[in-house]
Design a protein around this nucleic acid. Structure first.
Lengths: 119, 119
DNA sequence: TCAAGTAGGGCTAAATTCAGCCGTATCTAC
DNA sequence: GTAGATACGGCTGAATTTAGCCCTACTTGA
C-alpha cells in the first residue's frame, strides 16, 4: 500500500478532472466500458498491451473515485461486471470532445511524440 | 537529457490530448497565459508553488508541442514572452468545459483525494 | 488429472516525473 | 560594488507510476 506524500493540487476544476483521468489506461477503460465491454477478462483482451494486474488496479481506482461501479454476481463460475456510474456517464461527452480534438490535430501532434527527449 | 523507453500510446485522440496536458503545472500555465500573464517571472509569481526550474521545463515542452510560442525580445534587459498558438487557443474551450465538470463535481471528488492510498 | 478460463492480489524493480540546489549571464538602482 | 531583477540550464535524489513476476481458488471441458 502506498500513501501520497506530496499534496494534490485541487485549486481548479481541471485538476480534479486530470486527477480522475490520471493513469495510463483509464481512458481506454472508461471508453471500453461505455462501449459495452464490462467484464475484466474482456477488457484485458481489448487492452492487451497493459498487464492484467495494472488494469485491475486502475479499475479499483475508478471505482473508488465513483466513476465506475463494480457488480459481483454470486454465481459459481464467479462473474464480475463493471459499468459507468451516472457521474462516469457525464464524462462521456467530454471524452468525445477531447478525443475529437486529438484526432483533428493528430497530423501535427503525432510526429512530436516519437523519439521525444526530456530534460 | 532523458529519452523515453516505453512506447507512447497514441491510438486514440484522447491519449494525444492527455499527452499534451501531461505535466503537473501545464494546465495552470496554459490558463495563465490565456489570461494575459506572458512572462516567465510573472508566471512563477502566479504559480509560486512550483519551482521556477520545473515551470521552465514544462513551458519548453508546451513550445515543442506547438501549444505555446515563445518570443525573445532582443533588448538589453532581455525579455521573453509566451503566447498561445492557434492550436493552443483551440484548447481553451475544452479546458473550460473540463474545468466546469470538475467544479460541478468538486463536492463528490475532493474528499476522495485526501488521504488517498494506492495499491 | 491436466489444461484453460474465471477473478484477484503480493511483491519487486524499472521507468518517469517532480523538487530543489547551484551556477551562468546581463541590466538597473542605490 | 552590492543587491535584486531579468532569463536559463546542469545536476541529484525523492516521489510516483508502470511493468511483470508469481500465487491463490474455483469451474469447465477434454
Amino acid at each position: 500500500m502506498y500513501k501520497k506524500k506530496l499534496p494534490v493540487e485541487l485549486d481548479c476544476g481541471l485538476h480534479l478532472f486530470m486527477e480522475v483521468m490520471n493513469g495510463k489506461w483509464k481512458i481506454s477503460l472508461i471508453w471500453s466500458i461505455h462501449c459495452g465491454i464490462r467484464r475484466p477478462g474482456e477488457l484485458h483482451r481489448k487492452i492487451s498491451k497493459a498487464s492484467r494486474r495494472l488494469l485491475d488496479t486502475q479499475l479499483n481506482q475508478l471505482v473508488s473515485h465513483g466513476i465506475v461501479s463494480k457488480t459481483s454476481f454470486d454465481q459459481k463460475p464467479l462473474k464480475v461486471e463493471y459499468s459507468l456510474t451516472p457521474l462516469g456517464q457525464t464524462l462521456i461527452p467530454i471524452i468525445e470532445l477531447t478525443a475529437h480534438w486529438g484526432e483533428a490535430n493528430r497530423s501535427v501532434l503525432e510526429p512530436l511524440f516519437l523519439n521525444e527527449q526530456y530534460a
